[in-house]
Write a protein that binds this DNA or RNA. Structure first.
Lengths: 182, 182
DNA sequence: TATGGCATGTAAAGGGTTACATGATTTG
DNA sequence: CAAATCATGTAACCCTTTACATGCCATA
């Protein structure tokens, strides 16, 4: 289980609320580890019971109050300990790719439409990451090499996917003429 | 849940035992959806209860007997139904990337060593996929465009990862001189 | 003789998803 | 006026992981 470690990594730089973390899991870090708000609130509860994080209550006006969490010494120690031991293999659940593999039974038009919609999302992400990378690059990237490298991974990943998508479109478009579903 | 659909996709082409499926999940399809043998046997049990797959018992000599599963009409129908509806977003759990993101607290040497070991695995996979792609390409790739495209995805993915790994090595190697952990 | 491949499973514990629940403010 | 954003949670169910269990054959 390393949802907890992903949370500790995020809290390393700055204190954040559960909501903030959920946003980060939906964007940046979500590319490598995803989690929903329910999971996050639960895990924050456990982490604070175990004194790995600590929170302060922040009242707000016009918005609900929030809890800002930060790392404790124990939390930082646990993170360092975890960073030393080898990471397990990455796990993926990519339903779209399963559909492509089973494509001979699918309607080519449906697949192509889905491909386009995914490509759109990927292009948006790519743009976001490229902008981010440039900003990090300008503001001296030695301070945040790790952020920079993480973002680079995102960029290369999006590009590779988009390149693949073009190959798919090529292969499927001129075959959609004669085999348009059963 | 689409472990079941991944299984149905695999059984589409040929009958297979749980053990065979587990091997495929460890290799080819494992790149996009992974599952262990326990999960597979459990799911095959459910699928056969629901008449989506059917098995015949095959006695063997010198080896344990096995059950060869194949799709039923209901199974094929279910697969076609599933292929029509949009796939959910891909989910990933990549602990190594979490470690990179939290890298400032990590020992650079440890990270680099892990990077090398992962790179080795990726290079092996890449070679396997490239060989497979070539074979599919030679034997007329129109029959199995979907297999071909799946393999291409694997190739592009490995290449992108390896390219990223070189960037990481570059960035971290000349900084490991002065900052070799705390 | 120990390790790895073939082949199948069960059980408990832990992790993750989906649905439910609330409520004010801002934006379209 | 509807939808989205901010902000936090609980509960039930489902899925996944880890550990346990068996047993023969071939290879090192």
């Amino acid at each position: 289980m390393s949802l907890r470690h992903a949370i500790l990594v995020l809290l390393q730089d700055q204190e954040a609320s559960g909501y903030d973390l959920a946003r980060e899991f939906a964007n940046s870090i979500g590319l490598v580890w995803n989690a929903t708000h329910q999971q996050i609130y639960l895990e924050l509860g456990k982490l604070s019971e175990q004194d790995m994080v600590h929170y302060r209550h922040v009242p707000q006006e016009g918005k609900p109050d929030k809890k800002l969490y930060s790392l404790t010494e124990a939390g930082r120690t646990e993170l360092v300990r975890w960073l030393k031991k080898p990471a397990g293999p990455a796990r993926i659940r990519d339903a779209f790719m399963v559909k492509v593999a089973g494509g001979s039974l699918a309607d080519t038009q449906v697949l192509l439409a889905e491909l386009d919609s995914l490509a759109k999302q990927r292009r948006e992400r790519l743009a976001t990451f490229e902008a981010l990378a440039q900003r990090l690059d300008e503001s001296g990237r030695d301070d945040n090499v790790y952020n920079y490298l993480t973002v680079r991974r995102g960029i290369l990943d999006q590009r590779a996917w988009l390149q693949w998508a073009e190959e798919v479109r090529h292969s499927l478009e001129h075959r959609s003429a004669d085999s348009t579903a059963s």
